[in-house]
Design a protein around this nucleic acid. Sequence first.
DNA 1: CAAACACTGGTTTTT
DNA 2: CCAGTGTTTG
Length: 659
Amino acid sequence: MTLAKLIDELNPQQKRAATTTAQNCLVLAGAGCGKTKTIVARAAYLIDKGLPAQQIQILTFTRRAASEIVTRVEQHMGVQAKGLRASTFHTFCIYLLRRNPKVFGLTQFSIIDRDDQLLMFRLLRGKDKGNVLPKAAELCDLYSYARNTKTKLSEALVEQLPQAIEYKTQIAELMKAYEQRKQERNFLDYDDILAIVAVHLQNSPELVNWVTGFCSALLVDEMQDTNPLQWALLQPLIGKVKLFCVGDDAQSIYGFRGADFENIHHFKECVPDAEVLTLEMNYRSTQGILDLSNWLLQQSPIEYGKHLQAYRGQGLKPQLHILSNEFEEANWIIQDLNQRHSQGAAWAEHMVLLRSGFSGRYLEGALIAANIPYRFIGGVKLLESAHVKDVLSLLRVSVNPQDDLAWMRFLTLWDGVGDVGASKLAQELIQLPDIEARCQRLERHGKVPQQAILILMQLDVLQQHVEACIGLALDALNEQLENNYKTKDWSRRVKDFDLVKQLARKHSSLGEFLEEYVLDPISVSEIDKTPDQDLVTLITIHSAKGAEQKVCYVPHVSPTQYPHARAQGDFDDVEEERRVLYVALTRAENELILTKQNLNLWSHDQYDELGRKIESYFLNDLPQDLVDIRIHRDIPRAYGQASRSRSTAISLGFGIDLD
DNA sequence: CAAACACTGGTTTTT
DNA sequence: CCAGTGTTTG
């Protein structure tokens, strides 16, 4: 396909955006209005106008979105697209840091994930009993929020943890200690990655020149989800690069990470000479789906000024199925999937949108039982599961001997070593000058087997052979891990190690391998699947932006879920929840199927399990003509029968019976 | 005194 | 389902 053909497929608004000559441009586009298509066309257009592909940097929120865009540009531009970079903000920054560490004041560093952060905060905070300080997770989120929003601790406290304001001094001390520890160990957390680059760009015109030397066009996807830290990163480059951003305020769902959709309303004030364009025609969904989505948004006190209009006509009305519990919900979805599949639909035409990774548990079980192939994007991450981290700890200490967290993990695996002893020994080990000294110290300690120590030595020289390293690490740990996990699904866990080896094959150094998956962890159920396999997709709504599918299921559309119980009572949080649901609804192309598990149709005057009044529920006052509602009641089953939902539909006073 | 063991409760969302 | 806690054991 050629550029002409690509541009030809665009509508006049999209075409205007893709071919703009403005230095800076913001495209405001509703869901399904062709944002990705416009970015792809923009990249292709720039290349066609003579800008080398390696001068273009596309910034997206996920690795999936990035590779999709690259693939599509390649389809259109062939070899001319070679060198096009698309990555997340974090991966882009790492790319800069690795390419020129010295100018950022770095030599060697390791990236730590949230688990490591939690561990550090837990250690610094001390035991729980009688401890009035916020929990490790709260501290971690608070710290990250303050950095991402570039606010003072006191302000972040008011926003995020008002109940802990009185402990501000102690919290400040904890955070200081956390930062100091990070520095001593050459650790970078997720926020450091962005912050270091942002600060150095701000202070060094030479650095800006260096970056703009190989980055003359920046294309930013999902602009509504960028936070002040990410803005700070872009700021020094404004005016020096071509900036092209796309976004939708109604799909802003990363407020918890400091994103503020008001940013895009103020785009013109922050970016001089910016052109702001809008895309209004929706090509993804049929009107019935958009009617429900539009209604949801109109219920909001926030004025989004959006009314999605379908290009494709009226289509089918969304369905709402009411079942008695989570089991029945999952079983009903399985039944419906099976029925569609037997009528010739591919599994891959179906997507299930989930509020949390956790909320897919029943459905996942039911899919396995029913033998339906699926992948779960956003589910349990392979390299975050405990047993895989155990193995990785060995590799981590090999890459960065200063990594005391990894040392502790490795040491506590062995019998006779607990966290106290491990902590002491780890502090000693990171002081030692070389691998020989460390191994000698380990031998003297006596609790770590000879074989494991020997393998540690071997790893040191084998870093380029990632798969071999993992094989060795497994040799060292297998017996011990089997013992550690014998009561905890060992047989299931062993299988994951093959997947890890499989992943490792693609990487040329241990450090690179570890880094890649800290920045973008991969789901267990996703890992050995190829893109062309016929699979049902389970996906968290936060990972689903930009995704679309013919038939979409949105389970658990129940009171206390939308909005989530934790958001109740907070205006901004509730409205963000509304946008989360909005994003879910607007993924569907042809059919949208909601299920909920509360037989009480509405939540007026309802109370949750803790007796709190449910103040808001988005489906209260749902107009009767927007959805077809069916209530399913269980028929008692015979004992021992596999769970199977045979449900009867009873006609409610409104809506139609689909039978 | 430190570590293994058994138990329980509580889980949004992501880089 | 797993991390954090309290209890028992070495």
